[in-house]
Design a protein around this nucleic acid. Structure first.
Length: 679
RNA sequence: UGACUGAUGGUGUAACUGGCAACACGUCUGAUUUUGGUUCAGAAGAGUCUAGGUUCGAGCCCUAGUCGGUCAACCA
């Protein structure tokens, strides 16, 4: 259905090229390699969708590999959460793998490296090693232990493995090049000693491989064809390849690392470390707080797998830094939910309406369409009675012409019910509005088929019956940060931009009774308000709803812009100097493309130049006489402009004459002709 | 002062081997609408970081520059 868009992203181009060069399609294999040290977020979703999407597109397996090489930071809890999130997104992994599954093989290979004189045991402090490493602009110095004998290295390494040494005392390093311009090649660490319990291997190991050593070799062991990671690993590629060089069997597939830009979202942060800080400092309630950009947070908020996959699709993947506007994500949920959400009525900020001419005690059961987008979705029942709640914002005692809702003397339709007219208001001593007294038109009931029921009124508003409404808590969310890129400021921390009002709790919202049986894996559209879903804290009898996203609200926007307009117009407007493109630039531009044109379009372009030339001075034009002979278009444009200037009475300077002469002898016929007219 | 890398409307992505810069979001009109939603029709908005060059023709190729990102964890 959407296969119409054939454009490939750059990763797909790489794969297509490999395929074209004879790489067998059946050997394609991808992987998604999270470290189980935190929850997945929308940025990971980009990577997940990329890898699993590629798998689906090429019919290739995609492994889920936990990069669990650091027992100090990793936990089973995260493994479970990650699996749940990926499954929720709707992807199936071919194999569930762990870097820790390869610890023995990795160890054996390391021993082999030592035997080849390509690795050595170092025993200096981390400070000393860092010092010897040099800086990006100056080379490093070799470790005094760099030339330890192979036998000694072997012995030490084995004892490291056996747990004879304390954490941090010994290291295994690859012997590469301390002067490499790539810092990662300056004798990188292969193994360090960590005495910690590993969530899978327990206490079997006392040494653990570093990311670089484990990652490429794991890709190789799994025969991953394309190992896709984010841009910050670009500099690691050289090392990735060096490690593979040491162990690769040429008859087997050699993985290829390629990098893409991570996806950033505006008004949020996107690194596990920063998200963890929000959790730890209790800025949010947890990893799955509905304000968090985590998959679990978005899920709790009411985002659908579809909307997130679509977002990834639409946002695309590329190699440059980016900050995608959240509005794109919001668009994606709305688009999805609009199709699937059941329409209901809920009043979040109530004001009571009493219909004076409606019989006291009468209750009518009306029918509300479940989903106008799906004709077969049916209806559900809504009780109607004399006393109702409507939104406070839907009433104004006196309305201006742009306010379509209820006001004194003004009619509105109650959704799926009657047309009412506001007659009077009741206020307390302080002047606050208590209730609105209305009259209804008995013939106007929706769907009754009467003439009155077909009558058009300016607006339709939602409502709930006071006697039948159920109460619930509704949580509304705003962006977590006030700045578009909270972590992009040098002088300020992202913590400085926290939005203090990102959570608004409405304790007593009134919902139509149908919602007492609300389903936790369904989304509801509270009509005219937005999309809502049951929160995980919701209990029978104490319902809690999360607002996923509001409806597009052109009315609110109109008001907001009107307000700001009023504000700015009260001040003297500091007119920004109009950045009009200079006529000369315009001429140059038209000229640039001139030789591509013909017929009418050429005529039009020439006409345009003549128009623009009216606003150009001779002084401005003169420097362009020197335009390279190759740039025929520009020369024509300049010549045409000159023609106009001369006609206006500019004097033909020697420079101009020379220019005209040179044009006359040009190869371009157009140029020649134009020049001849002037000669 | 190094190495690597990137630069296309407000935002995100396109443009297959060079051939009058496309799609989506956002914005703005108008129509439809018992949701100021949806849908439909339309508009505005970039001459592709700058300066040169190659070419009949450059966003794509070349040269130089500018600006941004990444790299010096016993993290991944």
């Amino acid at each position: 259905m959407k296969e119409a868009t054939e454009s490939l992203n750059f990763i797909e181009h790489i794969i297509e090229e490999d395929l074209a060069n004879g790489f067998p399609k059946e050997k394609l294999c991808f992987r998604f390699p999270p470290e189980p040290n935190g929850y997945l977020h929308i940025g990971h979703a980009a990577s997940i969708c990329l890898n699993f999407g590629l798998g689906e597109k090429y019919g290739a397996p995609v492994n889920l590999r936990f990069d669990d090489t650091n027992p100090a930071k990793e936990e089973q809890e995260y493994v479970d959460a990650i699996k749940r999130d990926i499954a929720w997104l709707g992807f199936n992994w071919a194999n569930e793998c762990y870097s820790s599954d390869y610890f023995q093989q990795l160890y054996d290979w390391a021993v082999q490296l030592i035997k080849q004189g390509k690795a050595y045991v170092d025993q200096q402090s981390s400070e000393l090693i860092a010092e010897q490493k040099g800086t990006p602009t100056s080379p490093g110095m070799p470790s005094p232990f760099r030339d330890r004998s192979i036998a000694e290295n072997l012995d030490l390494f084995e004892r490291m493995k056996n747990g004879e040494f304390a954490s941090g005392t010994y290291l295994l390093r690859a012997k590469i090049d301390m002067a490499s311009p790539n810092m990662h090649m300056r004798d990188p660490i292969l193994y360090r000693i960590i005495h910690a319990h590993h969530h899978r291997t327990g206490n079997t190991w006392n040494i653990y491989p570093m990311y670089d050593w484990a990652h490429g070799e794991s890709d190789y062991l799994e025969q991953v064809s394309h190992s896709l990671c984010t841009l910050e690993f670009k500099a690691h590629r050289e090392l990735y390849d060096w490690y593979l060089d040491q162990i690769v069997d040429p008859t087997l597939l050699r993985p290829k690392q390629r990098e893409f830009a991570r996806r950033n979202l505006s008004f949020t942060v996107m690194s596990k470390r920063k998200l963890l800080e929000l959790v730890q400092k209790k800025v949010v309630s947890g990893w799955d707080d509905p304000r968090m950009p985590t998959i679990s947070g978005l899920r709790r908020r009411g985002y659908t797998p579809n909307s997130i996959r679509n977002f990834s699709e639409v946002a695309g993947i590329a190699r440059r830094e980016n900050v995608t506007d959240v509005s794109l994500l919001e668009f994606c949920v709305r688009e999805d939910l609009n199709q699937s959400a059941t329409r209901v009525m809920a009043v979040l900020n109530p004001i009571k309406v009493v219909i004076q001419n409606y019989p006291v005690g009468q209750v009518e059961i009306l029918h509300l369409e479940n989903n106008p987008e799906k004709t077969d979705a049916g209806t559900h029942e809504v009780p109607f009675s004399r006393e109702l709640y409507i939104e406070r914002a839907d009433f104004k005692e006196e309305a201006d012409s742009k306010f379509f809702r209820l006001s004194i003397g003004q009619e509105v339709r109650l959704k799926s019910a009657y047309i009412i007219k506001a007659e009077s208001v009741v206020k307390d001593a302080a002047g606050t509005l208590l209730e609105i007294h209305c009259s209804y038109e008995a013939e106007s009931r929706s769907g009754s088929g009467t003439e009155a029921s077909q009558r058009k009124v300016k607006s339709t508003i939602h409502w709930v019956s006071v006697a039948h409404a159920i109460q619930a808590e509704v949580r509304e969310y705003d962006r977590l940060f006030l700045d578009e890129s909270p972590d992009a400021h040098e002088s300020k921390s992202y913590m400085d931009f926290i939005n203090p009002n990102s959570l608004k709790v409405i304790k007593n919202a009134y919902l139509e009774p149908y919602l007492s049986q609300a389903n936790s894996n369904e989304s509801y559209q509270f009509q005219r308000l937005g999309y809502f879903t049951l929160d995980s804290e919701s209990r029978e009898g104490k319902l809690v709803f999360n607002k996923t996203v509001g409806l597009k609200d052109t009315w609110a926007k109109q008001n907001a812009t009107a307000a700001t307009k009023q504000q700015t117009s009260s001040k003297p407007i500091a007119q920004a100097p109009q950045e009009t493109k200079s006529a000369l630039n315009e001429i140059q531009y038209i000229g640039k493309k001139l030789t591509n044109l013909s017929g009418d379009k050429l005529e039009e372009a020439l006409r345009n130049i003549r128009v623009q030339a009216e606003n150009v001075t001779y002084e401005e034009l003169e420097p362009l006489f020197g335009t390279a002979a190759k740039k025929v278009g520009t020369r024509i444009a300049v010549l045409v402009a000159l023609t106009v200037l001369l006609a206006k009475g500019a004097s033909k300077t020697p420079a101009a004459a020379e220019f005209i002469a040179s044009c006359q002898s040009d190869e371009s016929i157009t140029l020649k002709e134009e020049a001849a007219k002037l000669a």
